[in-house]
């Protein structure tokens, strides 16, 4: 059981990372990546909603009539997102204000729907939950890395802590929208190249051992 969960975790965090491999859900969260703290909060929100949404949907999947499946999915996912919104508004008003509409936009984040459809609809509740956590974290990790780069270069700080002296000229472009697209593209490039290299190495090792090369995993 433990090994299986670990496999699901690895799948979401790296081999099938929602951003690198599935290219999902960059819309609603990229906008807040010029600030590490906001990004962390959003990533946690997405992870929470994906994990519990998957758990709930998987638990009630046999009860849902086919005709209203979509709408029930939306309802369940919205439930968790609204919960996040209510909690933020009550306990972190400043952050809630800064995030503005982007908390609500977690609902339309394709990862939530994507995992509900692709995994929770066909699996038991517990693995679905783990899958949700893994995908949320995999997604959050990439976004946080991007946010660290953007906040550091754009403000000279990380999490509001100034890391460099006054000599540093902030790269204003890093605060603005285009840099997020560039950084996601660079991260994608890096991960793809690493993936390709690992694949090639594996193949070479297999070939050297005289075993037939495995079919490329899609």
């Amino acid at each position: 059981m433990k090994g299986k969960n670990a496999a699901i975790m690895k799948e979401g965090l790296w081999t099938n990372n929602p951003i690198f491999v599935q290219v999902l859900g960059i819309c609603s969260t990229l906008a807040v990546t010029n600030n590490v703290r906001n990004t962390l909060i959003m990533a946690l929100g997405v992870t929470f909603a994906t994990a519990f949404g998957s758990l709930t949907l998987s638990a009630i999947k046999n009860l849902i009539p086919r005709k209203v499946r979509m709408i029930v999915q939306v309802l369940v996912l919205s439930f968790y997102v609204i919960l996040v919104d209510i909690v933020l508004r009550a306990y972190a008003p400043a952050i809630s204000k800064q995030l503005g509409p982007y908390v609500g936009l977690i609902i339309t984040n394709c990862i939530l729907m994507g995992r509900a459809e692709a995994y929770a609809a066909a699996n038991k509740p517990w693995p679905s939950f783990v899958d949700g956590v893994a995908n949320g974290l995999g997604y959050g990790a990439v976004l946080t890395a991007i946010a660290v780069a953007r906040e550091f270069l754009g403000f000279g700080s990380v999490l509001g802590l100034r890391l460099v002296g006054d000599w540093f000229t902030p790269w204003t472009i890093m605060i603005m929208a285009p840099s997020a697209f560039f950084l996601v593209a660079l991260a994608l490039w890096g991960s793809k190249s690493l993936g390709a290299r690992a694949e090639a190495k594996k193949k070479a090792a297999k070939a050297a051992a005289g075993a037939p090369a495995p079919a490329a995993k899609s």
Binding site: A185, K192, A196
Partner: peptide, 14 residues
């Protein structure tokens, strides 16, 4: 190779 498809598209959008 690593930029083909989505990568180069994102850069274009940037």
């Amino acid at each position: 190779a690593g930029l083909k498809g989505t990568g180069i598209t994102l850069i274009t959008i940037g």
